[in-house]
């Protein structure tokens, strides 16, 4: 840990400050969306996006199974959908601007 993540955070912070502190560069939406550009940060963010979609899918599937007393049908279905939604989230994160 230590130096290299320090550096990446410093870079991110600098980029963030440049964008938000001085608003003469009028790059609005897309720039803010891709504010974490360093690789470890991006990887961490992509991981979070993927896992969270999967969690939501599994939670919905589990809940529906419990509700309808159908063991595992909805869980399997929604886990797959959640995984797909996770991939979609990651794609939204990394897709080239204005695709």
């Amino acid at each position: 840990m230590g130096e290299e993540s320090d550096e990446s955070f410093a870079k991110r912070l600098e980029a963030a400050e440049r964008r938000s502190g001085l608003n003469e560069k009028d790059e609005k939406a897309t720039a803010a969306e891709r504010d974490e550009q360093s690789l470890p940060a991006l990887a961490l963010r992509a991981g979070t996006e993927m896992i969270s979609a999967l969690i939501v899918g599994v939670a919905i599937g589990w809940g529906l199974d419990r509700w309808f007393h159908t063991r595992a049908i909805f869980l399997i279905f929604f886990a797959l959908l959640g995984g797909s939604a996770g991939v979609l989230n990651v794609w939204r994160l990394v897709k080239p601007p204005q695709a």
Binding site: A53, I60, N89
Partner: peptide, 18 residues
């Protein structure tokens, strides 16, 4: 549509987990 809805619902989860 379900995938998009799940993707939308995952926002608060990813926000909080981060």
């Amino acid at each position: 549509i379900p995938i998009e809805i799940l993707s939308f619902l995952s926002r608060p989860v990813s926000l909080s987990i981060r």
